[in-house]
Amino acid sequence: MNIFRFAGDMMHLTSILVLLLKIYATKSCSGISLKTQELYALVFLARYLDLFTDFISVYNTIMKLVFIVSSTAIVWCMKRDRVVRRSYDKQLDTFRHYFLLAASFALALLVNEKFTFQEIFWAFSIYLEAVAILPQLVLLQRSGNVDNLTGQYVFFLGAYRAFYILNWIYRYFTETHFSRWIACISGLVQTALYADFFYYYYISWKNNTKLKLPA
């Protein structure tokens, strides 16, 4: 574990806490893409198949459980909770995320660390996570002004993988045979997708204006 990865995990956790706060405090999920939340739930379920077979550390196990439980709870809440689901922007959240699923799985079959069930699902989760934010970014562009909590949610979600890139650079230089090319390249793509969001987020923060993504 290094400071970059720990900071990244804490930002990831923060993004989930901010999203939970928004949904439970405002009893609303307006501006949140259910499709992105469904993709994230799949990312964690596919990535943590080793939850009960490979014990890394208490921290690792607890965080995996937190990510799985929170992501499925958010999907459940947006689909089933009578109050919350009324505020879901169904007509705006129209990104065809099944293509992202299919493309990620196809790529995982071709590019993986080992052609085993667990490794293919691990690579699938890495590729899927890189593109999972797309429905959310499209929804933000369509829904015009973005409320603060939603903006902070997306910001922390983007920042966490940027810290993981620093973590990979650090591990590359400090560990002899460190090679996580699948995660590294996918993480770079993932962070790049947030580039324009980060730009407009910075502008809104600098000018102290409402965050607005151009359509």
Binding site: R5, D9, H12, R47, D50, D54, I56, N60, M63, K64, F67, W122, Y164, N167, H177, R180, A183
Partner: peptide
């Protein structure tokens, strides 16, 4: 080695 086979990152 077996160790590095495991994905130790979240």
């Amino acid at each position: 080695t077996e160790e590095e086979e495991k994905h130790d990152e979240l």
